[in-house]
């Protein structure tokens, strides 16, 4: 076992399937024999409130349920305002995987506070970390509803990035989502995997052109 473990912050807003994402990932790492601690922080906002999951797997017992700022290997976020909240949690060589989806906040909607003047996507890109951005609008697909299954698109992306066995991950998806959503979720997973493949090829060619 080369990988001794990672700390992953999974973020977004209520209703985006963050808990399903961390649940599927936990099944995968359990099969690999890792120790796990997963701590979910769910806000008051009912639908639309911020949700974060601190996901830690390790080949040693995991101590703190919370990932200390500066200790996160990955921030995987389904909403870009939420991505910004966790950038400071990343390690120097940490990786960001963020959707461009944005649910405007009630305080900005009602002008209790001003929105950030800069583009949030650009702020994420400027963080200096290794960054992957997925735009759900650009990846709309008749085979599945990306507004509901962005979590599984991101799971496909993450698995490809980590070089995991897709058959195993798809099997876990099949076993853990309701029957009627299995087909759409597999399409979503394959979409994420394909986006990652294309991104990684592009990044490699960037590097080789330098």
């Amino acid at each position: 076992m080369q990988d001794t473990g990672k700390n992953i912050i999974i973020a977004g807003v209520g209703g985006q399937g963050i808990l399903l994402f961390s649940n599927l990932l936990s099944k995968f790492y359990m099969k690999l024999g890792y120790e796990l601690k997963i701590s979910d922080v769910i806000g008051l906002g009912q639908r639309g409130g911020g949700v974060e999951s601190h996901f830690r797997y390790s080949n040693k017992p995991v101590l703190s349920p919370f990932i200390k700022a500066g200790d996160a290997d990955y921030v995987i976020s389904f909403e870009q305002t939420e991505t910004l909240r966790y950038l400071h949690c990343l390690k120097e060589d940490g990786v960001i995987l963020s959707s461009t989806f944005e649910l405007s906040t009630s305080s900005v909607n009602t002008r209790l506070e001003k929105d950030m003047p800069e583009s949030k996507t650009e702020l994420i890109r400027k963080s200096g970390k290794k960054t992957f951005i997925v735009d759900p609008d650009e990846n709309k697909n008749p085979d599945f509803d990306i507004s509901k299954m962005m979590n599984i698109v991101m799971l496909g992306f993450y698995s490809e990035y980590r070089g995991y066995n897709h058959d195993e991950m798809i099997q876990i998806v099949k076993e853990n989502v309701p029957e009627k959503f299995v087909e759409g979720n597999i399409k979503a997973y394959e979409k994420g995997w394909a986006i990652a493949r294309a991104e990684l090829v592009a990044k490699e060619s960037e590097v080789s052109n330098c």
């Binding site: 906002g45 305002t81 906040t105 900005v108 950030m116």
Partner: peptide
């Protein structure tokens, strides 16, 4: 400057 989310 990240806006906060009041419950809705």
């Amino acid at each position: 400057g990240i806006p906060f989310r009041l419950p809705v």
